[in-house]
Simulated scan of single mutants.
Amino acid sequence: MMIGEHFKRVRNSKNLTQEQMAAGIVNRSFYSRVENGSSSITADNLMKILYKHGLAMTEFLRDFDTSESNIETYQDKITVAYINKDILALEDIYLHFKYEDVRTKRLLKFLIAELNGTATRKQFKKLSYIFFKQNKWDEETLWLIFHIMDWYEMSDLRDLIDSVIKKFNYKNSTERMKQLMIRIAIRYLAICFKRDKDDSKAKDIINCLKSLPNTADMRMYKIITVYYDKLFSHKYDEASDIANILNNI
C-alpha cells in the first residue's frame, strides 16, 4: 500500500474531506496529489497532519512494516530492552540465548553490567576489540556498534562514524543495513548533544538524514532528525513540541 492510499483510507474512516484533513498544513490541491501518489509529503507535514487529527505515528505506519528474520527480531528485542533500561529482560534473553554468535552474547553480558553500573573501560575495550578483530563489516557489526557508542571518546567516535561511512555504500545496502546506519547516525547526534559537542560532523549528519527519501519507513527517522536540528539550532520550544509528539507515539 502506498502512503497516499493509506492517507485516503484513514481520512475516509474519520469522514473528513481532503480540505479538512489538510487544513492549516498544506493546501487541498497538494494533499490531493499526495493521496493519488503524484507528490510526496515531508516528514514534518506528515507529523503535523497526524497530530492535528489525534493519530499515532506507529498506528499510521503499521501497514508499512515488513517482516523481519528471526535474528533481526532477536536483535531488536535486545535493543528495545537496552533502550528501556530493562535489565530483567536482558537477563532473560541472556539466559535463553539460542544463537551461537559469541559477540552478541558478550554484548548482552556487557549491557547488563552497564545498566547495573558495574561495566568498566577495560571491559569496553576488550569488547570493542572482539567486535573488530576479524575486520568483518556487516549488518551484525553495525548492530553491535550501536550499543557501545556511548563508551567512545568523542574523537574516537568521529573516527568510527567516518569508518562506517567509508565501509558502507548506503544506496547499495540492504534495507536492514540502511536502518542500522541511520540509527547509528541519530545516536551520534544524541551523544553530541548530551556532551555539548555541536561539531561539523553533527551538522553533516543532519543534512544527510534530511535528504533521506520521503518514504513511510523513513518518516520517524526524519522527524527525529528535525528534533535534533532544532536542538542544535537552540530552538528549544520547537524541539520540545516535537519531543511531546514523539513521546505520545
Rank of each mutant, 00 (worst) to 15 (best):
D92M: 09
S67A: 13
N70P: 07
F97E: 04
N84C: 04
K230C: 13
L88P: 04
L90M: 00
D92S: 10
S13V: 05
N214F: 09
Y129H: 12
N36P: 01
N12E: 15
G117A: 00
T42Q: 07
V164Q: 07
E19P: 00
M220H: 12
D237Y: 13
S38A: 11
N248P: 03
R158T: 13
V10G: 04
T174V: 00
D138G: 04
L189K: 05
F132E: 15
R176G: 07
R219T: 07
E35G: 01
A89I: 03
T118E: 06
I49G: 04
R187W: 02
R183V: 05
E19W: 02
Y129F: 15
K230F: 12
G37S: 05
S38K: 10
L160E: 14
K126T: 13
A216W: 01
T141Y: 12
L246M: 12
W143M: 10
S40M: 05
I41N: 06
K167G: 03
T73P: 00
I182Q: 00
N135S: 07
K178Q: 08
M218R: 15
F97Y: 15
I205W: 01
H53G: 06
L231C: 08
T141R: 12
L180R: 13
L144D: 03
T120D: 01
S128P: 07
C192F: 05
D101E: 13
E100A: 09
F131S: 02
I145A: 12
V102G: 06
Y170C: 00
E175M: 14
V10N: 01
S128F: 14
L115Q: 10
S38T: 15
E68C: 09
Q20F: 04
L107N: 06
R103H: 08
D199A: 02
S128T: 14
L127E: 01
Q75P: 02
F64T: 05
R187L: 03
L50P: 00
L111H: 02
M220R: 13
K201S: 10
K98T: 10
I130K: 10
I245T: 13
A23W: 04
N135V: 04
D196K: 14
L46Y: 07
A216C: 04
R195Y: 08
K230V: 07
D204R: 12
K85L: 03
D229V: 09
E238R: 11
K136V: 08
K125I: 14
T58E: 15
N12V: 08
M218P: 03
K85R: 12
F7R: 02
H53Q: 05
D237V: 15
M218Y: 12
Y152L: 05
F193K: 08
R33N: 12
Y221F: 14
V26S: 05
E72V: 11
V10F: 06
F131T: 01
I206D: 06
F124P: 00
D150V: 04
G4I: 00
H53S: 04
I161V: 13
V102A: 13
I93A: 02
E175H: 13
I41L: 14
I186L: 15
E91Y: 01
A81K: 01
